[in-house]
């Protein structure tokens, strides 16, 4: 057992897979010599050499195209898009090419690749370097989407993503890079499309993702002191979506809350609410509540950003308010 930071866990997960399989390669801006601007690939160049860990130009289309073409022809590339906001300049490759080529070719082409990216806010980077774009990705058929919240999950889900024969967008939360957690020794291989119950409870189901998981857990602890027992689910994966775990929990608690960092319109919580309406309606004992960032770009000032992204206090208060008899 080791205590690793989230950023160290990213490098450990990649190294675990590169060690196992020579066809796994890493490309991206500043990923090799500098070890990544977020230090998520520190030490990989030294360990695996310049043929497998490659610095690229600032050319996101060229990066994703290279990863896709290589994935179609025998490699299992991991490509880094430094900030997830930059997907906007190479989204064609993601939604038109990676997502659809297997389908359009009637299964002739397999695209086993991972695109890892720093996602999310709380670092005062302003509106173009703080977005939570996982909901863009989940709207496109053909792309798998994961967003781990703990170092152990980072390692295991990275391994699962690399071993997947489908393209996977792997969202690392920038606000979690310095967080620490226990990681078991030896290889770890997790499973895509599985949520985890982080805290069992009987009064309400609270579903969160990424940075919001630790905040939801902290809010649940405070609510427990006030006699409200929340079950907190870390969704971990948006595509595939582990709706069964959420619906099973809702069946026991009767109330559903989502805690989302994405702007309000069409966040993943909207889809979860729709699923609850379809398949969990008779389990609901009260309104579903979505706790989200408002539908605005994020401001850079710390005071403003903190007001917008769901905080522990806001999560606690909104749940408490909704559960008032």
């Amino acid at each position: 057992m080791a205590i690793l930071t989230y950023r160290e866990a990213v490098a450990r997960g990649i190294a675990q897979e590169m060690e196992r399989d020579d066809s796994v390669v890493l490309i991206g801006e500043d990923v090799a010599g500098a070890g990544g601007v977020f230090k998520t690939s520190a030490g990989l160049l030294e360990r695996f050499g310049p043929e497998r860990v490659i610095d690229t130009p600032i050319a996101e289309q060229a990066i994703l195209g290279a990863a896709m073409g290589a994935a179609m022809t025998g490699l299992r590339p991991i490509a880094e898009i430094m900030f997830s906001d930059f997907f906007a300049v190479c989204w064609d490759l993601v939604v038109n090419e990676m997502a659809k080529t297997r389908y359009m070719t009637n299964g002739q082409v397999t695209i086993p690749l991972v695109v890892k990216s720093g996602n999310g806010g709380s670092l005062r980077f302003g509106a173009q370097h703080s977005q939570s774009i996982e909901n863009w990705a989940m709207a496109v058929p053909g792309i798998k989407v994961v967003a781990p919240s703990t170092p152990e999950d980072v390692v295991g889900l990275m391994a699962a993503a690399v071993r997947s024969d489908d393209p996977v967008l792997f969202f690392e939360h920038k606000g979690l890079y310095s967080s620490k957690g226990e990681v078991p020794d030896g290889p770890i291989v997790d499973e895509l499309g599985t949520a985890r119950v982080r805290r069992p409870g009987k009064d309400a189901t609270v579903v969160a993702l990424g940075l919001m998981v630790s905040r939801a857990l902290a809010a649940a602890e405070q609510l427990a002191e006030r006699g409200i027992d929340c079950e907190v689910i870390d969704l971990r994966s948006l595509v595939p979506l582990d709706a069964a775990t959420v619906l099973e929990s809702l069946g026991r608690t009767g109330r559903l809350f989502t805690v989302e960092e994405n702007p309000r319109m069409l966040g993943w919580g909207s889809e979860l609410v729709a699923i609850a309406g379809d398949d969990g309606f008779w389990d609901l004992d009260g309104p579903i509540v979505r706790i989200t960032t408002p539908h605005i770009p994020l401001a850079s000032a710390d005071s403003l950003e903190d007001l917008m992204i769901p905080s522990v206090d806001r999560i606690r208060d909104e749940i408490e308010q909704a559960l008032k008899p």
Binding site: A62, G65, A66, M68, G69, A71, M72, P77, L93
Partner: peptide, 10 residues
């Protein structure tokens, strides 16, 4: 063109 690069890289 970028995807062809990838096949060439492979």
């Amino acid at each position: 063109l970028t995807i062809a690069n990838g096949a060439a890289w492979s």
